[in-house]
């Protein structure tokens, strides 16, 4: 698959998913059970993303490196009610600092 076709197909699917949500009849989503699942989906997706990006290395095996430390610092910043941008900068600075000191 060429890079361009991958970019365009991926983008088309992303837009179709957004649009589909705007076009679904509301009656289909009234069930309490369905609502709980749809409300929980972003939580599961974001947690899985954080976990895989922070603690898995090449080949998918678990590793503890500067990224895990960055997420820990981000969590502390969030506990202290830091704004979004500060959380992101603190995470990046932690990883950059640790790597500059030679810790991967």
């Amino acid at each position: 698959m060429s890079p361009w076709s991958a970019v365009l197909v991926g983008s088309a699917v992303a837009f179709a998913l957004k649009l589909a949500g705007h076009l679904v009849p509301r009656a289909l989503l009234e069930g309490a059970r369905t609502r709980r699942v749809t409300a929980a989906l972003p939580v599961a997706l974001l947690a899985a993303l954080v976990a895989t990006q922070a603690v898995t290395g090449a080949g998918g095996s678990p590793v503890l490196d500067a990224r895990a430390a960055a997420v820990a610092v981000a969590a502390v910043a969030l506990l202290l009610r830091a704004p979004f941008l500060l959380v992101v900068v603190a995470g990046a600075a932690t990883a950059a600092g640790l790597r500059a000191l030679g810790w991967q």
Binding site: V43, A44, V73, A74, F84, G91, A92, A95
Partner: peptide, 27 residues
């Protein structure tokens, strides 16, 4: 640390959703 910036950003997006015990369990 730009890869870690993405991890931190996702953490920040997840954070406000972790209000209930159920959400924490699912995460």
């Amino acid at each position: 640390g730009l890869d870690a910036a993405a991890c931190a950003a996702f953490t920040a997006l997840l954070w406000p959703r972790l209000r209930s015990r159920e959400a924490v369990g699912i995460a």
